[in-house]
């Protein structure tokens, strides 16, 4: 099929990376911990790609991306636990369910809030993130299983290198193809000039909703993978800071640049986890002193985004 044909180079490259990783993992050189982080990099890249679709390509600013990541995680974990689907073979279905749930909620919430732009959209998505956090914190009232503010425990560990790899590579190729189709083109038109987009017949509302839902779908799938990797979920894993994490990756990697997001995701997780290993825990708090500084410096250095050639005044 053309899907695979057009992507054969990428698929070959991915297969190569997979073989190297698999050899490393099974040789016992790398610790369990590092293996987990390697898988986590894929998850973060997938979720950040979702934000890149929403913000980088379509220009819809979101400060609540982690909420959708969380919705995917809770959905999949809940399904697996209540239905007793403790098998790797059922995982694709629950991943999909997590993604669809996130995408669906994004669609519902997107109808009112995507009328907003820029900073107001940022605040509205931030507000939605808080709402979701409040929901997770009180989720034990709906079902004891969800755990509320104590956290969701005892989730089956189903995520492994293979499934993460296949799912991430597949969805990245899907994303690349959508981006280069008419839909991706319309998204970029909307980012560039919404009024002009409408004037040539682009249904901007629908296209923005589509980008937002699809981006959140990716976050949902990523969240579901996360749930079955770490087997424990806590509302604080999906708060504002997590959304900022994704935002930093998108900005670092360059808005509207999928390859950049992959590198940036790798770099970012490596950096954060590296600090965790290198620094004693009492200095670890310093991380969140430097990360915002980095963000500020990035904005001053390249206010139009990393990939842009425009500088300074405009």
């Amino acid at each position: 099929m053309r899907f695979f044909l057009d992507s054969r180079k990428l698929i070959l490259l991915a297969a190569g990376i997979y073989i190297v990783l698999k050899l490393l993992f099974s040789s016992g050189i790398v610790s369990e911990y590092i293996q987990q982080i390697t898988i986590y990099v894929f998850i973060v890249v997938l979720a950040a790609t979702g934000l890149n679709v929403i913000y980088g390509y379509t220009g819809q600013f979101s400060l609540g991306h982690a909420a959708f990541y969380g919705i995917g995680a809770y959905t999949s974990a809940y399904l697996v636990k209540t239905l007793g689907l403790n098998s790797v073979f059922a995982l694709p279905a629950t991943l999909l369910a997590g993604g669809i749930m996130a995408g669906l909620i994004a669609c519902i919430i997107g109808i009112p809030i995507l009328r907003l732009r820029d900073d107001f959209l940022g605040i509205a998505t931030l507000g939605f993130g808080i709402l979701v956090r409040v929901f997770f914190d009180n989720s034990d009232r709906i079902s004891e299983t969800l755990g509320g503010s104590r956290g969701f425990t005892g989730i089956a560990k189903l995520t492994n290198l293979e499934i993460t790899f296949v799912v991430t590579v597949f969805l990245l190729i899907v994303t690349r193809n959508i981006i280069s189709s008419r839909y991706g083109l319309f998204w970029r038109c909307i980012k560039d000039d919404e009024t002009a987009s409408a004037s040539i017949g682009i249904d901007t509302t629908r296209m923005k909703l589509m980008a937002f839902s699809y981006g959140c779908f990716l976050a949902g799938v990523a969240g579901a993978l996360y749930a079955h990797l770490y087997t424990f979920l806590h509302p604080s894993n999906f708060d504002f800071l997590k959304s900022i994490d994704f935002l930093i990756i998108v900005i670092l990697g360059g808005m509207g640049n999928i390859a950049g997001t992959i590198y940036a995701g790798l770099l970012w997780v490596g950096f954060i986890e590296g600090l965790r290993i290198a620094l004693p825990s009492n200095i670890l708090d310093l991380r969140w002193v430097f990360i915002p500084l980095l963000l500020i410096v990035l904005m001053m250095w390249r206010p139009y985004g990393l990939m842009s050639k425009k500088k300074g005044d405009g």
């Binding site: 057009d6 959508i178 008419r182 839909y183």
Partner: peptide
């Protein structure tokens, strides 16, 4: 092309699977 494509549609599915 963006303007042309608003009147000439194919589904997202067609776009994904080329």
């Amino acid at each position: 092309t963006s303007a042309h494509l608003t009147g000439h549609s194919y589904s997202p599915f067609a776009g994904i699977f080329r």
